[in-house]
């Protein structure tokens, strides 16, 4: 399957899962909104240019927004993590040329610890920006902090489950440079 087709299917699936499963669940607690959809951005291939990533992030966020009737909210958060992603990868990648030898960031291509850090940093960033925008007009700093931390924890758990359930095998590609 080509990368483009694979990512298109992922795009649709992540939006549907977020809208029809995670948003439909009765809320566990007022601090917790489970988010998983942004994993799509973390899974995008290395080869995408920076501007390309930002555009994809924007469109992806906006399409979720049109479902949840909050145009711009998720788009802003997704654009942010899509823009920051290359910097984080650049800092964390362990072996020289891993971003050329593998297709996309994963446990296999980056290693456990760097990949976990990558996910945690971007999840935290995404949630902070999202909740900040959501709560801008409603104040209460404690609330903001609680919601960011609780939602991040739940999202990380979901990401872990997804990574274990849908383990992405990645081939080592040589002679590609």
């Amino acid at each position: 399957m080509s990368e483009l087709l694979k990512n298109t299917i992922r795009f649709i699936l992540f939006i549907l899962v977020q809208v029809f499963i995670l948003f439909k669940m009765p809320p566990l607690h007022r601090f917790i909104t489970p988010y998983l959809y942004y994993l799509f951005i973390l899974w995008l291939p290395f080869s995408l240019s920076r501007a390309g990533l930002t555009v994809v992030g924007f469109i992806f966020g906006l399409s979720l927004d049109y479902f949840s009737k909050t145009p711009g909210l998720h788009a802003a958060a997704c654009t942010l993590i899509a823009y920051v992603r290359p910097f984080v990868i650049g800092l964390l990648i362990s072996q020289e040329g891993a971003d050329k030898n593998y297709i996309s960031p994963s446990i296999v291509s980056m290693g456990w610890a760097p990949y976990a850090t990558y996910v945690i940093v971007l999840t935290f960033l995404h949630h902070t920006w999202l909740v900040l925008l959501e709560w801008m007009s409603f104040g209460s700093f404690l609330y903001f902090l609680g919601k960011v931390i609780a939602s991040t924890a739940v999202s990380l758990l979901l990401v872990l489950l997804t990574e274990l359930l849908f383990f992405r095998k990645q081939k080592f590609r040589t002679n590609t440079i």
């Binding site: 930002t54 555009v55 924007f58 966020g61 906006l62 927004d65 009737k69 909050t70 145009p71 711009g72 909210l73 788009a75 802003a76 654009t79 942010l80 925008l133």
Partner: peptide, 12 residues
């Protein structure tokens, strides 16, 4: 893109 999305949000 950030400004576009924020303007969407506040306008809405």
């Amino acid at each position: 893109l950030q400004i576009v999305s924020l303007s969407f949000l506040f306008r809405y």
